[in-house]
Design a protein around this nucleic acid. Structure first.
Lengths: 334, 334
DNA sequence: TTGTACGCGTTATCAT
DNA sequence: ATGATAACGCGTACAA
C-alpha cells in the first residue's frame, strides 16, 4: 500500500498544506504539529511522489546522459563521475545509449523531452545540427562532454589537437622519425570532417621537418581489432616504421596484441603511445604509455556545470582541461 | 515554449479528451478530426508530459538498475543489454551506483521509490535482507541478475558453484594437481557467508583426491591489484604451484601482469584460468582461458523478465543459464 | 463521434 | 500557525 499526502494529513488531523510544509521544512507550523506529522509519516511509511511533485514544480531531478556506447572504459568513467555528482545533489541519471546512430539519438531526445528531464549531457558523441536544434527547442540546459562543440553550447573537453601534437612531439624527441598513426574516425574521415587528433599529429611532424603523408595514417573504428589490423597495414605502408601513435588506448592495446602475435617487440622494435590513459594501460604487457586527458575531472566538471546551470538558469562558461603524458614502458628512445 | 494538451485541443477546436484519444490511438473519432489534431500537434510541436501521464497511469516507463560499480566490464555489459531491451519497449533506465555500500543503496531505493519506477533490477550486488524488505514494501517487481538469491525473488544467473567446479576439473584434467585459487570476496569470507565459487573449486579438488586447504586460497577484492598480490601470496604459500583459478577475469589479468613482472611464464610455469570471459581475455598476453557464463544472455533475459512482470503483474520463473570453457592460451597440460 | 467533469498527488496562494 | 482551494497536464468514465 502506498499512501498519499492526504492520508497523512487526515491521520495527523491537519491539512495537506501543513504536511507539505513540514515535508519541505518551510516553517510556519508549531513544533507540536511538526512532531505529530513526522510521526504519522513514519508510521504510514509515507513516501512523497516525485511524479506529482514534478508536475507542479517543473523539476524532475533527473538528467539524461547520451553516450555512444557503454563498453568503452572512457565512457563508463564519464558515467561513473556524472552519477556520483548527480547523486550528491539528489538527482538521478537516465543512461541513453545512442549507438552513435542518429535515429536512436533522436528517439531518445524525444523520450527525454517527454520525461521532462532537467538537463542533458552529451558525452563523446558527434554533435549533429539536428540534435542541437531539437535540444534548443526543449529549452533545457545542455553540456557537451568530450564532444566537439560545433554548435554554441557550453562544453568541457581537452584539446585533442594539442594532446595529439604533444604525443607526436614526444615520440620525435625520443628520436623517432618514421612515425605512423592509427585513427578511429573512419566515417568522419570519409565525410571529410575536421579530425583534431589527426591534425595535431600531422602538424607536429611537419613542424619538426619529418615526412608525413596519408600513407602514415590508417583509419578504422575504435576497437581492438582495428588496432590489430591497423598495425599490419602500417608496417606494410611504412616499412621502416619505429613508432606508432594511436588515437586511443583501445587501439593501442590492439597494436600491442597484434605485435605480440607477429613477433614484433614493443618497444624495442616499435614504440607505441596511446591516448586517454585508461586503467588498462597499466595492466597490459608492456604497460602502455599514454596521453592522459584527465577524463574523470572532465566528467565531474561537466556534471557540476550541468547542475549549476539548472540551478542558476544561466549558461556556464566552457573550459578546456590540460593533458599530460603518462610514461610507461611501450616507448623507448632511438 | 512547451504546450499542453489543452493548447492542442483549443487550436484544433476539439476537447482534450479527443486529443488524448488520437494520441493513444484509441479510436472513436472521425478521420477528419484525427487529421486535424495531428496537424496541430505537428505545428505546435506538442510533446505530451510523461510526468502528468505517470500521475494518472501509475506507470512511469522507467526502471532502476542497481549496480555495485560502473567500471567492471561485466557490469557495463549488463547495463548494455538492459538498456537495449528497455529502449525497445519504450522505457528508460536509471543507473544506481551503490558502490556496494548499504547506506547508498538504501538511499537509492528511497529515491527510486519516490520516483515511482516500474521495476528494479539488482545486478551483481549482495542482496541484503534490508533491501529485500524495503523492495517488498515498494510493491514493484524485482529481478536479480547474477546475484545470489538469498531471498525469494525471481533471478537469472549462472551456477557459480558448477562453473567453478568445471574450471577446477578442467585444470585437473590437464594434469595439474597443485592448484591455487584467488577469490574476490574478502568481506563475505570474513563474514563467513556462502561462497559458491570457492565451494565449487574445493569440491572439485577433493572429488579428484587432490589436496586442498585454506592455504591454497587467497582472498582479496576484485581488482587487478588483488590479482597481482594474490599471485605473490600464492606462490609463497604453495611453492610447487602449477595452476591458478581466479574468481574472475580481472583477477586473472592481474595474475598475468604480476607473472610478467616476476619473470614467471604463463602458461609454461603456471597456468591461469579466469571466469566471466570478458572481452579483455582476448587482448591480454597471453590470451586468457576463461569460463564463460553467457552474461549478455543473462542480462537480456533478466530485462525481458522484468518487463514481462511489469506487464503481467505475475512473478516470473527464475532460471539458471549454462556455462562453458573458452580455451585460449593461458593454460597448458602437465 | 465528441465533450464534461473529476481524479491523480503535490505545491503555492490566499485567507483566516 | 493553519486551512481551503486552485493550479499542474493528462486519462477516463460518463453523458450527450
Amino acid at each position: 500500500m502506498t499512501y498519499t499526502i492526504m492520508d497523512v494529513a487526515k491521520k495527523a488531523n491537519v491539512s495537506k498544506a501543513t504536511v507539505s510544509r513540514v515535508l519541505n521544512n518551510q516553517g510556519g507550523y508549531s513544533e507540536k504539529t511538526k512532531k505529530k506529522v513526522l510521526e504519522v509519516i513514519q508510521e504510514l511509511e509515507y513516501h512523497p511522489s516525485a511524479i506529482a511533485r514534478g508536475l507542479t514544480n517543473k523539476r524532475t531531478h533527473t538528467i539524461g546522459v547520451l553516450v555512444p556506447n557503454l563498453t568503452s572504459s572512457l565512457i563508463t568513467e564519464f558515467l561513473n563521475e556524472i552519477e556520483a555528482v548527480a547523486h550528491k545533489v539528489g538527482s538521478s541519471v537516465i543512461v541513453c545509449h545512442t549507438e552513435s546512430r542518429g535515429i536512436k539519438t533522436m528517439k531518445y531526445l524525444q523520450l527525454l523531452r517527454e520525461k521532462r528531464i532537467d538537463g542533458l549531457i552529451l558525452a563523446g558523441t558527434m554533435f549533429k545540427k539536428e540534435y542541437y536544434d531539437y535540444i534548443e527547442k526543449m529549452g533545457i540546459p545542455i553540456v557537451l562532454l568530450s564532444t566537439y562543440p560545433v554548435h554554441p553550447v557550453p562544453y568541457v573537453t581537452a584539446s585533442d589537437y594539442d594532446a595529439a601534437y604533444t604525443a607526436a612531439k614526444y615520440l620525435i624527441q625520443k628520436g623517432h622519425n618514421k612515425i605512423g598513426m592509427i585513427s578511429g574516425n573512419k566515417e568522419e574521415w570519409i565525410a571529410g570532417s575536421h579530425l583534431p587528433r589527426v591534425e595535431g599529429f600531422k602538424d607536429a611532424l611537419s613542424d619538426y621537418k619529418i615526412s608525413v603523408n596519408e600513407n602514415h595514417i590508417v583509419y578504422g573504428s575504435f576497437s581492438y581489432d582495428d588496432g590489430m589490423t591497423g598495425l599490419k597495414h602500417l608496417i606494410k605502408q611504412v616499412p621502416d616504421l619505429t613508432a606508432i601513435f594511436t588515437e586511443n588506448d583501445t587501439l593501442g592495446i590492439g597494436v600491442l596484441s597484434a605485435a605480440y602475435h607477429l613477433g614484433i617487440k614493443v618497444p624495442e622494435d616499435i614504440s607505441v603511445i596511446g591516448m586517454d590513459n585508461i586503467n588498462l594501460c597499466e595492466v597490459v604487457t608492456p604497460p602502455l604509455t599514454s596521453v592522459s586527458l584527465s577524463h574523470s575531472e572532465m566528467a565531474e566538471k561537466a556534471a557540476n556545470m550541468m547542475f549549476e546551470m539548472i540551478e542558476s538558469k544561466k549558461v556556464a562558461k566552457s573550459c578546456i582541461l590540460p593533458h599530460k603524458i603518462v610514461e610507461r614502458q611501450s616507448v623507448c628512445s632511438r
